[in-house]
Design a protein around this nucleic acid. Structure first.
Lengths: 228, 228
DNA sequence: ATGAGTCTGTCAAAAAGTTTACATTTGCAA
DNA sequence: TTGCAAATGTAAACTTTTTGACAGACTCAT
């Protein structure tokens, strides 16, 4: 119990919540551990809870019947997912998979409803989150619909550098994220082969450096120019 | 003045708002008329107001530097747009253009802030709207990234039939919407020529009927099968 | 009724990305 | 250290869509 409380209070999940909401939330929320690849929920299901990521990361996928896969979002520690289905009652829009081992906080629909009933001021705290996700989705639309693969790849590498870039002593910024070309392809909605070809091209132009499972961004300005 | 009040009270814009919010809103909101094609706001600008559509429709576009255009959303009477930038303070994510003559209600940022300050319960009423837009955007992502042109076209035609389909005495449902193939192409993120080719194919298979500026859906089940 | 602007159909050449196939490299665990 | 699974590199053939170009059809306002 005290364990759950400590983890929760130490995470950014509750930042900005009114005091009066934190206590009851601590009461009802449950802790859940996920192993790598575990499915938290899947597209089409009814939404029974929302989840706060305490450690690890959760990936949201869309899958077509033909087996094509799209990696729409990676949610990190401190973020919530699954709230939309609780608000509008519609089915899950994605598969949610643990990427590596994860701990999530589970807030059941009934508990959320009760909390909101007692503390309607809490509604307000969902607005920035929804706005952020809406912008993310709209930007995804814009990118995939208006820009070619080389442009999208440059943009995505810059984004990833922003979030996961780290100076590791080598030249340039290392993108510290388990990110095989296969996954990058699923983000960009193209095949792995196409990504491989383009990455090689970027490397030959000196904009990035590649090694097995690793990627350094050497020339952000150069990528920016490609990104338009 | 009473004109504005009448229009407003007769529109679905205020549905669900608490009584205590409607009165002050009526006070501060302004009426604005737009001519066909008029730009309400444009991508990158700061958000100074949100807008409720009273009549006509507003289209949201993204444009690339290369001149490619994407028609992301068409907003109809009873819907609000532009609220996101007021909440998060970030620039407009789209160009907003009047499609045909429009009347919109203008709610300035300062007025919205004052209203929310006085009536924080109003935050709650933005949540369903944000959820709906988020789902729309996510579904757009899924479609454009996972499905081929023939599939996307079938899906879009079915959606349009849902919203704008009308029995006009002829065979099938007429899509009552000014929708040249050029615009359909901008929704689907392909060229007009590709849309023209695909529409012809659908017509030759008996799923739709085409005439200059008009389109009837003859076989929804058939489209559904194409849509996967 | 007519001319201008809008909308549609079509085609050939080019480009972009997929598919299929296979070889190689790397990291990790038994 | 060896064997396996994961990740990467490459290439030819193919498919889809774009590009650029043009002709014809339709509408509407003057």
């Amino acid at each position: 119990m005290s364990n759950k409380r400590d983890i929760l209070l130490g995470s950014p999940l509750l930042a900005g919540l009114p005091e009066t909401a934190i206590e009851p939330l601590l009461e009802v929320a449950k802790l859940k551990k996920l192993v790598d690849g575990q499915l938290l929920y899947s597209q089409g299901e009814a939404g029974e809870a929302m989840y706060g990521v305490l450690s690890g990361s959760i990936r949201l996928y869309n899958r077509s019947e033909q087996g094509r896969e799209l990696l729409v979002m990676q949610v990190e520690r401190g973020d919530w997912i699954g709230e939309v289905s609780l608000f509008d009652g519609l089915p899950r829009s994605h598969d949610a998979c643990a990427q590596g081992p994860c701990e999530v906080l589970v807030l059941a629909k009934a508990d959320l409803d009760a909390l909101l009933e007692k503390e309607p001021a809490m509604y307000r705290h969902f607005i920035p989150m929804l706005c952020r996700k809406l912008r993310m989705a709209l930007s995804y639309v814009e990118n995939v619909a208006l820009y070619s693969l080389p442009e999208r790849l440059a943009r995505r590498l810059l984004e990833l550098t922003e979030f996961y870039g780290e100076d590791d002593g080598e030249q340039g910024l290392r993108i510290t994220l388990h990110l095989p070309q296969e996954d990058l392809a699923k983000m960009l909605a193209v095949t792995r082969q196409a990504v491989s070809r383009e990455l090689k091209r970027l490397e030959s132009e000196g904009l990035i450096r590649l090694a097995y499972g690793k990627l350094w961004v050497l020339d952000q300005a150069g990528l920016q120019k490609l990104a338009k």
